[in-house]
């Protein structure tokens, strides 16, 4: 029982991690707390339905298309909304992403309606035994994807030119600019990456929660909490935070009652921020926020 709770907690946590990492990546390169991150994922899930149902595409053909659209959405938001106000304070940027949130919510509601839709691809709840604990197939599938994405991100940041440039911008945008790094392009790339992660978050979550404009709201908020665990700055910190939240709330849900599931993450964040005001991983953000 306990092992099972932990396993499904890790599975949920890995989905939170997708959002948390996107929040951190965007925040540390652009000072933006992106409230629209969840909506990128929501749009991606709807697009997934469109491609699978209306165009009768295969799952693995749909995935790259959705990723492309989602990245495009990120880039559009950067160009049309964020860039014109890039020089203002973080609160203005934060509120602007709220504007994007409203717009995407409205568009999704308009085009696809408010009621929840089932995702055409679902997974059997058929449990598989892993190291003696029973895990559902869907959870295993999601975890596998999350690990793959984590690996891709790691390789991207470690070895590609763009990834290294991105880290340079994180550390010191002024110096990066002087070193000839195209900061504007990197910021664009940051938003594209947010879209990339959102596409996976949306597609992987869709079979579990059903698709509706509000599907991501709760996940998004948990994603922030996880991001704060990493000090809004550290990607490994955010991933660890997300997994911890997933496990903790699953245990709370299992042993205390379902009502306490949501409260757990926030009890954790209140306690964390009380004792470690800059997050668990003690990395001092370089820029004053």
């Amino acid at each position: 029982m306990f092992g099972q709770q932990v396993m499904s907690g890790l599975a949920t946590g890995s989905l939170y991690a997708l959002t948390a990492v996107a929040v951190v990546v965007v925040f540390r390169n652009t000072r933006v707390i992106n409230l629209a991150q969840g909506d990128f994922a929501m749009i991606a899930a709807f697009l997934g339905i469109v491609f699978l149902k209306n165009f009768q595409l295969n799952y693995y053909l749909m995935l790259p298309l959705v990723i492309l659209c989602s990245m495009l959405l990120g880039v559009l938001v950067e160009r049309l909304v964020m860039r014109p106000i890039a020089d203002t304070d973080w609160l203005t940027l934060f509120t602007a992403t709220l504007g994007v949130y409203y717009i995407l919510h409205g568009v999704a509601g308009w085009v696809w309606g408010r009621d929840t839709k089932a995702f055409p691809v679902t997974f059997d709840a058929k449990p598989i035994s892993v190291f003696g604990t029973l895990v559902s197939e869907g959870h295993l599938f999601n975890m596998a994807w999350a690990v793959c994405i984590g690996l891709v991100l790691f390789l991207f940041f470690k070895y590609t030119k763009q990834g290294i440039a991105m880290r340079a911008v994180t550390d010191d945008p002024e110096t990066a600019k002087l070193m000839g790094i195209p900061v504007r392009f990197i910021v664009l790339l940051t938003w594209a990456m947010a879209g990339f992660l959102a596409a996976f978050a949306g597609i992987l979550l869709a079979p579990i929660v059903y698709v509706s404009p509000e599907m991501m709201d709760e996940v998004l908020v948990k994603g922030y909490v996880a991001a704060v665990f990493g000090g809004l700055y550290s990607i490994p910190g955010a991933i660890l935070g997300a997994l911890m939240i997933g496990v903790a709330e699953n245990l709370a849900g299992g042993y205390l009652g379902a009502h306490y599931k949501t409260a757990t993450a926030f009890a954790m964040i209140v306690v964390l921020l009380t004792f470690r005001p800059k997050g668990l991983f003690g990395i001092q953000a370089r820029r004053e926020i």
Binding site: V221, Y260, A263, V270, E288, I289
Partner: peptide, 18 residues
């Protein structure tokens, strides 16, 4: 301060809601 305060207070609202 800053974004941490924003998320902390959001947590408070959720807490009251629960």
């Amino acid at each position: 301060s800053g974004a941490f305060m924003a998320i902390g207070t959001l947590g408070f609202a959720f807490f009251v809601g629960t």
